[in-house]
């Protein structure tokens, strides 16, 4: 009994170090495996890694800075159990990481956020991070007019607000990479190519899509496709439609999200 009490006391003493250390290791592991970008926008990585470094420092120094409680465990067994459960609860993030699939498959629920699945109607300009209207504008204007231009559905939300870009892109061949989503009410050769746009973390992810006409057989929601064709800017249903003459299934890109 005495040994058990001593072990329990040691466990309770070191528990905060264990919890903070597990969080720090989780963040460092996510960063080292380049998985952090799937959970959080890169512009916040510095904050998270600073937090991880502070927590790691605290957990290493913890046994030197603090001393074990002098309370007798036998007189407060219920408190001990409560404390034990709260420590298990705090270890939940580490447990959640173990549940994640190795390829970080994006939850279908994020793709199905239908409020903006046909974002070529969107009016907003996305100025955050790399999705910068000025960058997109320069990229399009300075591109080789004879080669297919690689654009994302988010770029198109910027294009639609700029008549000059629309003019440049008329009759130009463009290629768009995205995840395939069906459109139930449309003809069978119409679908949406979607990219997921993240501002802070995966909880605020929203799909940005472009209505695409082309042949895809046996495609499943979330499959990655590259469609090449021309853009139509005067369709009465949507502001921009991609009329694709070539649609091929491709491997997911290294970065699943746009930021």
């Amino acid at each position: 009994m005495k040994t058990f009490a001593r072990l329990s006391q040691t466990f309770l003493f070191l528990a905060p170090a264990l919890v903070f250390g597990s969080w720090a290791c989780l963040l460092l592991r996510l960063n080292q495996a380049q998985e952090l970008t799937n959970l959080q926008s890169p512009r916040f990585h510095l904050y998270s890694l600073t937090g991880a470094a502070v927590l790691l420092g605290i957990s290493v120094l913890f046994p030197l800075l603090f001393i074990p409680s002098t309370s007798d465990l036998r007189t407060s067994l219920s408190q001990f159990l409560k404390k034990f459960l709260s420590i298990l609860w705090l270890l939940l993030p580490a447990g959640a990481y173990l549940l994640l699939p190795p390829d970080f498959t994006v939850p279908a629920a994020l793709l199905d956020r239908a409020w903006s699945s046909a974002m070529s109607r969107s009016q907003g300009a996305f100025s955050a991070g790399r999705v910068d209207p000025a960058v997109v504008r320069n990229f399009i204007l300075q591109s080789d007019p004879h080669a297919p231009l690689s654009l994302s559905p988010v770029d198109l939300t910027i294009v639609q607000a700029e008549p000059e870009l629309k003019e440049v892109l008329t009759k130009r061949r463009v290629e768009i990479l995205g995840q395939w989503l069906p459109l139930e009410k449309n003809p069978p050769d119409e679908f949406t190519l979607v990219r997921l746009l993240m501002t802070c973390c995966v909880a605020d992810v929203r799909p940005v899509g472009v209505l695409t006409q082309g042949k895809t057989e046996g495609a499943q929601s979330g499959d990655w496709f590259k469609a090449t064709g021309t853009l139509i800017f005067d369709d009465p249903r949507q502001n921009i439609i991609l009329k694709a003459d070539q649609v091929e299934e491709v491997e997911p890109p290294e970065e699943i999200f746009l930021y």
Partner: peptide, 20 residues
């Protein structure tokens, strides 16, 4: 459950440094 873990970790990673 893996999908929940995905979004949960995103919220945790985002909020933890600010809580600290």
């Amino acid at each position: 459950s893996t999908d929940i873990a995905f979004v949960f970790l995103g919220l945790f990673v985002q909020g933890m440094p600010f809580l600290l």
